[in-house]
Computed example of a mutant assay.
Amino acid sequence: MSRTIIDVYALQTVPPSNLNRDDTGSPKTAVYGGVRRARVSSQAWKRAIRLAFANLLDRSQLGERTKRVGESLAARIKALDPNLSDEAASALAAEVFVAAGLAKLDNKKGEIKDIESSYLLFLSHRQLDNLASAALEASAAGAPLDKGRFKELARTDHSVDIAMFGRMVADMTDINVDAACQLSHAISVHAVDNEFDYFTAVDDRKVDAAETGAGMIGTIEFNSSTLYRYATVDVDALHRTLGDAAATRAAVEAFLVAFARSMPTGKQNTFAHRTLPDAVLVRMRDTQPVNLVGAFETPVRETHAAGRVELAAAALAKHTFAVEQAYGERPVASWVTQVGEQTAVLADLGKAVSFSELVAGVGEQVDLALGQPA
């Protein structure tokens, strides 16, 4: 059966930075191809993409992931019925999540507080608005909002971020949503050794020359790297969840922009590490996703003649051709946005366009795949 898969690849160089820390504060790493690489977890970049969606999509198309579900729903109930007291709105919100089995009411003191779920609960803004309306209707009828009604409302009006990244609810598995998008951990195309920045901070009140010494000292661990990034979007799965072709195209286009322009913010004020990709390659397939990370199983080693970006672009182009030749993989369409001569070799892999043209071109192809008129 023919599928519509969008594979997105990027090469991106970041300066000294600590984008994504482990539990000790060190930049995350991974061993690949026998050497240690810089790594940025998929979770960190998904979060950055979700935050970027706020500037690309209407709020009604997005969701909210929080444990403070009672507070969120109570605010919506109060907005619909301003005559309700804050306490009554909180009590009604609590009833909804307790009845659904997603939260337990701790009422030892005889008063109802805004409740929390035991884990992060991901609901779209439209779903929360619908729940608020249903809660008020049930309250007016003198009946609680039951679990069945909650499920019904949680299964419809999914947001783009829920459709893209999925939702898992352990206590109510029939409202789970399979993710239409998979995002790999970004890794450096070369070996990396973390470094330490020893810093001091001066006390502004020390004005006497006799007072020596810093106000504080410390160290920050960092590295710099050229990252290989990959994501894939199952357009058919996205369309099934969103239920609308126009919304699916808008979601794909927003994802491409967010993928290219977002950046995890770890130690951002310290390192000012925001960059844009040196190259973005998008291939639409009708078979399966294909991660081309094998291009960098042998780590890139820069020379006096060529730097990491140039060598990485050449390795990616060579590996892409080899894999697709060996398996008969022929993309339905392909687009490339690349910066300068260092990545010029990638222009042979698809239609060389500006990034805005790439996004529009993919969007048009999504319309065609979903049977929409050109």
Rank of each mutant, 00 (worst) to 15 (best):
Y9M: 14
R301W: 01
A93L: 14
C181V: 12
W335Y: 04
A180H: 06
N223R: 12
A141I: 09
A54Y: 03
P289V: 10
A143R: 08
R249H: 07
Y327H: 08
A48Y: 01
E253C: 05
A352L: 02
V339T: 05
L105I: 11
L73D: 10
Q342V: 10
G213I: 13
V35D: 00
R205H: 13
F271I: 07
I175T: 11
A10F: 01
D236G: 10
L136I: 15
R155N: 10
D129E: 15
V336W: 08
I112H: 11
T343H: 13
A30H: 00
A352Y: 00
A326Y: 06
K28V: 02
K351M: 05
G218C: 07
G63K: 00
Q268L: 06
R155D: 07
V300N: 06
N55G: 14
V309S: 04
K109H: 11
Y198K: 04
D236A: 13
R126P: 06
P331W: 03
T29E: 00
Y228K: 12
H190Y: 00
A214L: 12
S26E: 03
V353K: 02
A132K: 06
D204S: 13
K151W: 02
E329S: 04
A360I: 03
T298P: 03
R68M: 06
V290F: 14
I217M: 14
A317L: 08
H185T: 02
A251C: 07
L153G: 11
D193S: 01
F53I: 10
V359Y: 10
V309F: 06
V8D: 05
A10S: 06
D129M: 08
A305W: 11
A258E: 01
R21H: 08
R21K: 15
K151I: 09
D114F: 10
P277Q: 08
A99G: 14
R274T: 11
H125W: 10
N20Y: 04
T226N: 13
V290G: 09
N194H: 04
P264H: 02
S72G: 06
S117M: 10
V362S: 04
T212L: 15
E111K: 15
D348L: 09
R274A: 13
T248M: 06
T66D: 00
L84H: 12
K147L: 11
K28I: 03
F222Q: 12
T232R: 12
A186T: 01
A209V: 11
V252I: 08
K351L: 14
A141R: 15
V282W: 04
V14E: 03
R39M: 07
N194M: 02
I162M: 12
F97M: 11
G350N: 05
E111G: 09
E364L: 02
Q325R: 09
Y230C: 03
I77T: 10
S224F: 08
D193M: 01
Q12F: 05
E116Y: 07
G213R: 13
V359S: 09
D81F: 07
T232N: 15
A246Q: 15
E324D: 08
V323R: 00
R149A: 15
T298C: 01
A143T: 12
A209T: 09
A231Q: 03
H319L: 02
F122C: 02
D81V: 08
G350L: 08
I77F: 12
A154S: 07
S224G: 09
G215A: 09
R65D: 01
A250S: 15
S224H: 13
F150C: 04
A134G: 14
V362P: 01
N291P: 05
F355K: 06
T66W: 00
N223M: 14
E324I: 03
